[in-house]
């Protein structure tokens, strides 16, 4: 089938994010959790409007695609992700761009993912 001409394609937004978690999370588990959160928060109808898709995910950072007018809803869905197959995690959105290239260049290249363990130089105070 012929690809739709650019004017008829859905406009999209690309959300660059980092996943802050206790330990590394496999890509499949992340996808499963995002879709389960989406269906729980906005349901089938909302999910179809948002059209969320995980494009790339490597070294705890990646890009999520959604429709251009549902970035807020998508953000809310991603904010409700708190536990991925038993690992505590936070999805922190670094920025939104209109192209994959823009999102990668502006927000992901050279970005160091926050590691809570490295920060906790005062862990010994915990009893």
């Amino acid at each position: 089938m012929k690809i739709l001409p650019p004017t008829l394609r859905n406009r999209k937004r690309y959300l660059a994010f980092e996943l802050i978690s206790e330990k590394e999370v496999p890509r499949d588990d992340l996808i499963k959790e995002i879709f389960s959160c989406a269906s729980s928060l906005i349901g089938d109808l909302g999910s179809s409007e948002c059209n969320i898709r995980l494009l790339s995910f490597e070294n705890s950072k990646g890009i999520i695609r959604c429709n251009h007018n549902t970035t807020d809803k998508t953000r809310a869905v991603l904010a409700t992700v708190s536990n991925i197959s038993g690992t505590q995690a936070v999805i922190h959105i670094l920025g939104i761009s209109g192209t994959v290239k823009g999102a990668t260049k502006k927000y992901l290249e050279e970005f160091e993912v926050f590691n809570p363990k490295e920060q906790s130089y005062l862990k010994e105070y915990k009893s």
């Binding site: 802050i20 926050f114 809570p116 920060q119 906790s120 130089y121 005062l122 862990k123 105070y125 915990k126």
Partner: peptide, 9 residues
């Protein structure tokens, strides 16, 4: 978590 941890986060 300790105050320091939360501060960094």
């Amino acid at each position: 978590d300790t105050v320091k941890d939360v501060m960094a986060f």
